[in-house]
C-alpha cells in the first residue's frame, strides 16, 4: 500500500440525488435545522447551541446526521441554492422526508446508507470526491494538498 492509498478511504452508499462533486468536507455530529437554523443568504449555521454556529457550508461537502426542526428545511436550502451558497454535496446518515426533499431541491449530489459511518471516517478539512450515481465517496485525509 502506498502512502497515498493509506491516506485514502472509500465509502460506498446509496444515491439520494445523482451527480459528481468534489471539495472540502465540513463535518458535524449534530443534525441541522433549515428554517431558523441557517442563514440562506450566506450559508452559515445560526442555531444558537449548534457546534457549527457561525460557520458556512457554502461550497463545502456537508457531512452530517440529517435534518431536524421546521418543515421549512427544503425551502431554506432551496433558497440557499438560488442564492449560490448551498453545499457542493451532502452526505448524511439518517433519512427523513425533510432531508430527502431538501437534498432534491438543493440539486447537489447526495448520498446516504453508507457502509462506513461517514461522520466517523470524514473529518472537517478532508478532501472528498463523491460520485452519487456510482455510490462511492473517496476521502483524501488531511485535505486537498495531500492528494496532489
Amino acid at each position: 500500500m502506498t502512502a497515498l492509498e493509506a491516506q485514502q478511504r472509500v465509502i460506498h452508499g446509496r444515491r439520494v440525488v445523482g451527480g459528481k462533486a468534489e471539495g472540502e468536507a465540513l463535518v458535524t455530529r449534530e443534525t441541522i435545522s433549515g428554517w431558523g437554523g441557517i442563514n440562506e443568504r450566506d450559508g452559515t449555521i445560526i442555531e444558537r447551541r449548534h457546534e457549527l454556529v457561525g460557520q458556512s457550508f457554502a461550497g463545502k461537502i456537508l457531512v452530517f446526521p440529517g435534518a431536524k426542526g421546521s418543515s421549512g428545511w427544503s425551502a431554506f436550502f432551496h433558497m440557499a441554492r438560488l442564492n449560490g451558497v448551498c453545499p457542493k454535496a451532502m452526505i448524511f446518515t439518517r433519512m427523513t422526508t425533510k432531508m430527502a426533499l431538501g437534498a432534491v431541491v438543493t440539486r447537489v449530489p447526495a448520498m446516504t446508507d453508507c457502509d462506513l459511518d461517514p461522520i466517523e471516517v470524514i473529518e472537517t478539512g478532508d478532501w472528498v470526491s463523491i460520485d452519487a450515481d456510482a455510490g462511492t465517496i473517496t476521502v483524501h485525509k488531511g485535505g486537498a494538498r495531500s492528494c496532489r
Partner: peptide, 26 residues
C-alpha cells in the same frame, strides 16, 4: 401532506391521521 412541524406532530399523534413532514415543494 402537511408542512409545519408542530401541525404534523399533532396530526399524526393526536388525530391519528398520517403525514410526513412535507415541504414547500412537495
Amino acid at each position: 401532506a402537511w408542512m409545519e412541524s408542530s401541525a404534523v406532530i399533532y396530526c399524526n399523534s393526536v388525530l391519528g391521521a398520517r403525514t410526513n413532514v412535507e415541504g414547500k415543494e412537495s
